[in-house]
C-alpha cells in the first residue's frame, strides 16, 4: 500500500468522536477514587477514633504527604501520556511529597527520644499497611494503565511507574484514615515500601499492556 493510499483511508475516517485525553484523565481520577473508596470501606474502613485523631498533627500530616504524591503524580502522568507535552515542571513537583516526609522525619527524630524511635518505626500495623495499600491501589492502577493505553506515552515504562505512584498516593490517602501508626518514621518506611510495590506493578503493567 502506498502512503497516498493509506492517506485516502485515514481521510475517510477523519471525524474524531474520541474523548480528549485530558477529559479521560479526569474521568479516570473520579473512577479510581470511587474504586479505592469502595475497597477501603469493604475491607478496613476508618479507625474508630478518627474524630479525635483529626486534631493531631501527625495524623493530618499523613494526608498532606499522600495527597501531595497523588496530585503531583497526576500532573506528571497527564504530561507523560501526551506526545511533546513538557514534563519538566511536573517532574520537579514530584520532589514535594518525599521532601515533606523527610522534613517530618527530622522533626520526629528531634522531638521523640531515641529510645522510642524503634517502636515508632515498627508500629503495630506494618503487615496491614503492606497489604492494604496495594489492595486498595490495584484497581485504580488498572484504570490508569487503561488510560495510558488510550493515550500515547513515548516513555511507557516511566509512565507506568508514575501510574503506580498515583495509585499508591490515592490508596495511601485512604489507608491513612485507618492506620493508628501516625509517626512519620512509620509512614516513611512502610508507606514507601507499599507504594513502591504499586510503582513496580505499574512499570510492569505498562511494559506488557501499553504498546501503540
Amino acid at each position: 500500500m502506498r502512503t497516498d493510499d493509506l492517506i485516502k483511508a485515514l481521510d475517510a475516517d477523519a471525524r474524531s468522536t474520541a474523548m480528549p485525553l485530558g477529559s479521560a484523565w479526569w474521568l479516570a481520577a473520579g473512577a479510581a477514587t470511587v474504586i479505592a473508596a469502595v475497597v477501603f470501606w469493604l475491607t478496613i474502613g476508618p479507625r474508630a477514633d478518627i474524630a479525635t485523631a483529626m486534631h493531631t498533627m501527625r495524623f493530618l500530616a499523613k494526608f498532606v504527604f499522600t495527597t501531595a504524591l497523588a496530585v503531583s503524580a497526576f500532573a506528571l502522568i497527564r504530561a507523560l501520556s501526551t506526545p511533546s507535552a513538557s514534563t519538566g515542571k511536573a517532574a520537579a513537583w514530584m520532589i514535594a511529597a518525599p521532601l515533606l516526609v523527610i522534613i517530618a522525619v527530622v522533626l520526629e527524630l528531634l522531638s521523640v527520644p531515641a529510645a522510642d524511635w524503634g517502636t515508632r518505626l515498627v508500629g503495630s500495623n506494618m503487615v496491614i499497611c503492606l497489604t492494604s495499600i496495594p489492595l486498595i491501589g490495584i484497581g485504580p492502577l488498572a484504570v490508569f494503565i487503561a488510560v495510558l493505553r488510550y493515550g500515547a506515552p513515548t516513555r511507557p515504562v516511566l509512565a507506568g511507574t508514575v501510574a503506580g505512584l498515583l495509585a499508591g498516593g490515592l490508596a495511601a490517602t485512604f489507608y491513612a484514615a485507618h492506620c493508628f501508626d501516625d509517626s512519620p518514621l512509620f509512614v516513611a518506611t512502610w508507606y514507601t515500601i507499599a507504594i513502591a510495590v504499586l510503582a513496580a506493578l505499574g512499570a510492569l503493567g505498562a511494559r506488557i499492556f501499553v504498546r501503540w
Partner: peptide, 11 residues
C-alpha cells in the same frame, strides 16, 4: 497511523 488513532491526545 499513530497520528490518526491517537489524535485525541493532541490538545
Amino acid at each position: 497511523l499513530a497520528i490518526h488513532v491517537k489524535r485525541h491526545t493532541w490538545r
